[in-house]
Amino acid sequence: MVKDRSIGGRLFDTFNYIFLGAFALVTFLPFLYVVTSSFSLTPTLFPREFNLDAYIYIFSAPTFTRSLLISIYITVFGTAIQLLLTVLMGYSLSYKHLPGRRLILLGVLFTMVFSGGMIPTYFVVKSVGIMNTLWALMLPSAISAFYLIILKNFFQAIPDELKEAAKIDGCHEVGILFRIILPLSLPALAAFGLFYSVGIWNQYFSAILYITDSSKYPVQVLLRQVIILSQGSIGDSTEIETVPAYAKSIKMAVIVVATLPIMVVYPFLQKHFAKGVLIGSVKG
């Protein structure tokens, strides 16, 4: 029979509950303020009236709707491209007999410490001819060295007997990858897929550097413009009238709309995080 905990232990648990509850409340209040302010013409934590004018305004703007669709497009296809390239390279490097494997791994590790920098990357993007295209928002960061190393370790942890059995049955390397390795790697793919998608969805600096056509701006660039500018218009001033008197509510509504897609996807993939990331971060 389990003995009753001491008074000190129960007091310690009570203190932890109170402290963590207060901390959670403090972190939740700013988000609650943003949401409630987006539904009120007067930004406040507890609005007296419920109003949808801010949402009607931003969704009636062709600039915002177009930017939102662009962000969804580059997030979906960019994540698919990044996952595919990371899987192909990680699976290849998981073979210890791969010629030049050690040199390639050293090159990957080198990029985790040193990078080319903003200006060289800009000239690379320009030289390959993807400036002012959506490819510039997906390809330059197509493979994360950190995620690649973890996924490579994940593949190495899969028993070689499975691969050998598949080869005996006449399965080639591509078949082994897509029929055996990937189904066993769904937790890792789900975790890194979410990491990649969040990175693409939240990027705005790359769009500022590589995109000069405002009609190709993702929603985060538009969000940046709305927040920074106290006056003006959403996006291109030639496409929509100036921001009305409830500009603060519009800013809050844009933040909610820009954050909502990731918040909706996150709960479905949260259970895969610990298993998907930690399983490949132990072995080298």
Rank of each mutant, 00 (worst) to 15 (best):
L194H: 00
I211R: 00
T121N: 15
G9A: 14
V113R: 06
D169H: 02
F268M: 03
I7T: 15
I58T: 04
L189C: 02
G107F: 08
Q270K: 09
F31W: 10
A157C: 05
V108Q: 02
I70D: 07
F50N: 00
M263C: 13
P47V: 10
A258K: 02
I58F: 06
N153R: 08
S71L: 04
P159L: 04
K251D: 07
K248L: 14
Y73T: 15
E161A: 15
I234R: 02
T42N: 10
V113S: 10
D213N: 13
E161L: 12
N51F: 03
S67R: 01
K163Q: 10
N153H: 06
K283V: 13
A157H: 12
E164Q: 11
I234N: 03
A157T: 15
L98I: 12
G9C: 12
Q270D: 02
D213G: 07
N202R: 07
F192L: 10
A136P: 08
L278E: 12
T133M: 08
I70K: 01
F273Q: 02
L223G: 07
V108P: 01
M263S: 11
L182Y: 07
V221A: 04
V256M: 09
L45W: 11
G100F: 09
S37N: 05
L260G: 06
V264Y: 01
S214I: 09
D169T: 02
R179I: 04
T75C: 07
A80I: 15
C171R: 10
L98D: 10
F59S: 00
F15L: 14
I262P: 03
K152I: 03
P218K: 01
H172V: 07
V76G: 01
T212P: 11
M263N: 01
S215M: 05
R48C: 00
N153P: 07
R101Y: 12
S40M: 06
V282M: 13
V128K: 04
I130K: 08
Y73N: 12
L85A: 13
G199Y: 05
V221M: 12
F77C: 12
F146I: 11
S71P: 03
N153E: 09
K3W: 14
S141W: 00
P120M: 10
R102V: 13
Y55I: 10
P267C: 04
F77R: 14
G8C: 11
M112L: 15
K248V: 13
G90S: 15
L269Q: 03
S206H: 09
P261S: 09
Y122H: 11
V282W: 03
P62S: 01
